[in-house]
Design a protein around this nucleic acid. Structure first.
Length: 582
RNA sequence: CGGAGUGUGGCGCAGCUUGGUUAGCGCACUACCUUGGGGUGGUAGAGGUCGCGGGUUCAAAUCCCGCCACUCCGACCA
């Protein structure tokens, strides 16, 4: 491509709306341009990156035996009624009507459509397994789109759905997909982790997320410093440590007058114990699928925080919201003084695993302005018979790995892939069955596999940039080499640059020729902003047949006879891409 | 969806408090000259219904009311 003819617009100043690196640089480099909240144009440069990503995904999915289809973007609402998701999905689902007043949705995910496609067509276990995937637009009417391509409302996603006759075959496919995804992200040259995850609103079990590691990722991951354990903080667990001995002994359980002291730190200080020996009560209102609302109290050590996702899952609720003091009082609770001892028997509660065997604890007395001290959770009679321990605490840096016991470390990531087992959740509701060997109709057992394709553009920049701009991995770069003609008015520079350009094209290396009538400074700054992996500067040494070769990532500069350029590039590309694969 | 904020040429902003001639600056853009390895310097230009609607007033970018859009913090999410 000749730069002088290319639709490239770079911005010297950062548009004020951009905060994160990827948003800033993609905007400044003219890879994207915003149309509306969470909706973007992709320019030719952006499209080239997108195509690279898609190509890798297609190759690997096809290699794994999946078949590409194209499902509709606009889906009749009636399909969503069949699964009940039409109502459940909330405002993120964009609903609208056509001229005949028939309701439709803009697809945010495509389980319904793919099941509809397959049902009645796949009738026998002999036709299974089947894996269909597509790369298509999605729309989710996000409450708050942000960070450019990282959280758009309209985005491109690869979504795949597999159909199986039994769970062991689903398991096999799931493993295959994990391997395939690893291969995909490795080929892109990205640093990533595979983590255990919550399966979220789509439902299902056995969930794995693929996280690109980046400082300002939206997800927090717990990663073991020793073994391969890695989990999204939402579901990360830790080893139960034996309770520490409380140095402050109490002869017997007693009530302490603690007027107006409600916060954990204040309570600990007031009574004179380490917050570790206090019991924190987190009151929430749980909302269930059927619309029921129940007050639930989560008890944790004063040094721990409730992990809402784990809390939610521990009681099978759809959502947890903060309970107001009025709601608590109505339920017979004393806000600020809630404790597990003497809790009204009608109240649903959950104890964190780490409280198992805890003794000499301080907790709210369920009585205004009083706490209890010296209580142990072994005193089952105080708790009633309903001891209900679950792991509901948020893992902290330094907690112990559930697998090997080494310390865990927290790090940030951007979710770019998610695979999970759906089971029969959709096939049953949509009455999609096949005849098994035993002659009985059974619902398909399904798996679901997503990759945030357009998000990957952003995630990749988020991970690969410096203070001057983007640093593409060779696998995703829109062009591999920028031939920079330093002074376009010098005929020799121009001629040699053109020759090299044709030579590289013949060699099959994607090249952009900066033949603009601009100064050197402008061109090199654009090169750095746009992030092409390599630059060949045809400049003042060309009369000696020498050009300058630059590596964007390392900043390395070297003088090189022009006829050695192709060789040099090929060498670097091979070693670079191999490194990416490792 | 709660809280905060912003809307003035393509981009970044000033002007608004205290209404008053042709609405200004930097970058980018056009033409010419100049310079030519890190966003050269100069001369002359083009480009704006001041987010939209209504109101107050002799007069509104500026004051008042309504609406819309976008951004940020939070809740939520591939």
């Amino acid at each position: 491509m000749r730069w002088s003819r290319a639709f490239i617009f770079t911005l010297k100043e950062t548009p004020k709306d951009a905060v994160t690196a990827s948003h800033k640089y993609l905007l400044r480099g003219g890879y994207i341009k915003q149309v509306g909240a969470g909706i973007y144009y992709l320019t030719p440069l952006g499209k080239r990156v997108l195509d690279k990503i898609q190509k890798i995904i297609r190759e690997e999915m096809d290699r794994a035996g999946a078949q590409e289809v194209l499902l509709p973007y606009v889906v009749p609402y009636e399909l969503w009624e069949e699964t009940g998701r039409g109502k459940k999905y909330g405002k993120e689902l964009l609903r609208f009507k056509d001229r005949k007043d028939k309701p439709f949705v803009l697809s945010p995910t495509n389980e319904e459509a793919v099941v509809d496609l397959v049902r009645g067509v796949v009738k026998s276990y002999k036709q299974l397994p089947l894996h269909l995937y597509q790369i298509n637009l999605k729309f989710r009417d996000e409450a708050r789109p942000r960070f450019g391509l990282l959280r758009g409302r309209e985005f491109i996603m690869k979504d795949g759905y597999s159909f199986h006759k039994d769970y062991s075959d689903l398991e096999r496919e799931f493993q295959l997909m994990e391997k395939t995804y690893r291969q995909i992200f490795t080929r892109m040259g990205l640093e990533f982790r595979v983590v255990q995850a919550d399966s979220g609103a789509i439902g299902g079990t056995g969930s794995r997320e693929f996280m690109v590691l980046a400082e300002n990722g939206e997800d927090t991951l717990a990663i073991c410093t020793n073994c391969d354990y890695a989990a999204n903080l939402e579901v990360a667990t830790r080893q139960h440590k034996p309770p520490r001995e409380n140095p402050v002994k109490t002869e017997e359980i007693e009530e302490v007058y603690t007027p107006g002291v409600t916060k954990i730190d204040e309570v600990a200080q007031f009574i004179g114990v380490d917050p570790y020996f206090t019991i924190k009560a987190v009151a929430k209102k749980a909302i269930y699928e059927d619309g029921r609302e129940v007050i639930v109290i989560f008890f944790l050590r004063g040094t721990d925080e409730l992990e809402e996702t784990k809390g939610k899952n521990s009681i099978g609720a759809l959502e947890l919201v903060d309970a107001t003091p009025e709601e608590l009082e109505k339920a017979g609770l004393v806000p600020g003084f809630i404790g597990p001892f003497g809790l009204p028997s009608s109240i649903r509660y959950v104890l964190d695993d780490d409280l198992r065997g805890a003794t000499e604890m301080v907790a709210g007395a369920n009585k205004k302005d009083y706490h209890i001290k010296g209580a142990g959770l072994l005193d089952a009679n105080l708790l009633g018979n309903l001891t209900f321990y679950r792991d509901i605490a948020q893992v902290k840096e330094g907690d112990l790995c559930p697998k090997c016991g080494a310390p865990l470390k927290l790090t940030k990531g951007i979710e770019v892939g998610h695979i999970f087992k759906l089971g029969t959740a959709y096939s049953e509701k949509m009455n999609a069955t096949f005849l098994d060997e035993d002659g009985k109709a059974k619902p398909f057992i399904m798996g679901c596999y997503g990759i945030g394709v357009s998000r990957l553009i952003g995630a990749s920049v988020e991970q690969n940039h410096d203070e001057r701009g983007i640093v593409w991995t060779p696998q995703l770069a829109p062009y591999l080499v920028d031939i920079l003609i330093s002074d376009i008015k010098k005929p020799l520079q121009r001629e040699r640059g053109e020759e090299l350009y044709h030579q590289l094209q013949t060699a099959g290396i994607e090249t952009i020729l900066d033949d603009r009538k601009e100064r050197f400074g402008v061109k090199i700054t654009d090169f750095e902003l746009l992030g092409f992996p390599f630059c060949v500067i045809v400049g003042r040494d060309i009369d000696k047949g020498v050009v300058e070769f630059r590596d964007r990532r390392t900043g390395e500069k070297l003088k090189l006879p022009i006829e050695k350029v192709v060789e040099e590039l090929k060498e670097r590309l091979e070693s670079g891409i191999e490194k990416g694969r490792g």
